[in-house]
Computed example of a mutant assay.
Amino acid sequence: MDRENKRQFLIDWQNGRSSEWIFAQGNEGGDLDSMTSALTWAYHLQHSTQNDSHPVKAIALLQTPTAALDLRPENKLALDNSKMSSGHSDILTLTRAL
């Protein structure tokens, strides 16, 4: 997920337009395949329709608390290699939207 996508979602959410978005959710266990699937599916939905007359707005919503994302070594490695912002502020989780 890119920073701009999350920024756009938060703007829409603050303006009462969150219903325009599709949420791709990972499970609360927070394993690598769940996290990766949610992020990839949201990316695919948004980017595969960006040239359509009605592009889809999609965002990954991880049910894992932000502070727990690095507890699994495979998640930490994947997130570090993807060059996410420190503290994983690029990712929308249930515990921290901003």
Rank of each mutant, 00 (worst) to 15 (best):
N81V: 06
K6N: 01
K57M: 01
M35L: 14
P55H: 10
E28V: 01
L77E: 14
M1S: 08
H88V: 10
R96M: 10
G87C: 05
G26K: 02
R72H: 08
A68F: 10
R72Q: 11
L77P: 00
S89F: 06
D33L: 13
N81M: 14
S89K: 08
V56R: 01
L32S: 03
P65L: 06
R96H: 13
D31E: 14
W41G: 05
L92C: 04
A42P: 00
Q50W: 07
I59H: 03
M35D: 01
T95L: 04
E20R: 12
R17E: 06
L39M: 15
S19P: 00
T64S: 13
D12K: 02
T66K: 13
H47F: 14
N27Q: 04
N75S: 05
T66H: 02
N27Y: 04
K76F: 03
L39W: 00
M35P: 03
D2L: 05
I59D: 04
D31H: 05
A24G: 09
V56D: 00
A58K: 00
L79R: 11
K57A: 02
M84H: 11
L94Y: 04
H88F: 03
W13Y: 15
Q46C: 05
R17A: 10
D52E: 14
E28F: 01
G26I: 06
S19V: 03
M84A: 12
L45V: 05
L62Y: 08
T93C: 12
L45M: 14
F23M: 15
N5Y: 03
H47E: 07
G16S: 04
N5K: 12
S34F: 11
L94W: 03
L98I: 06
S37Q: 09
D2H: 09
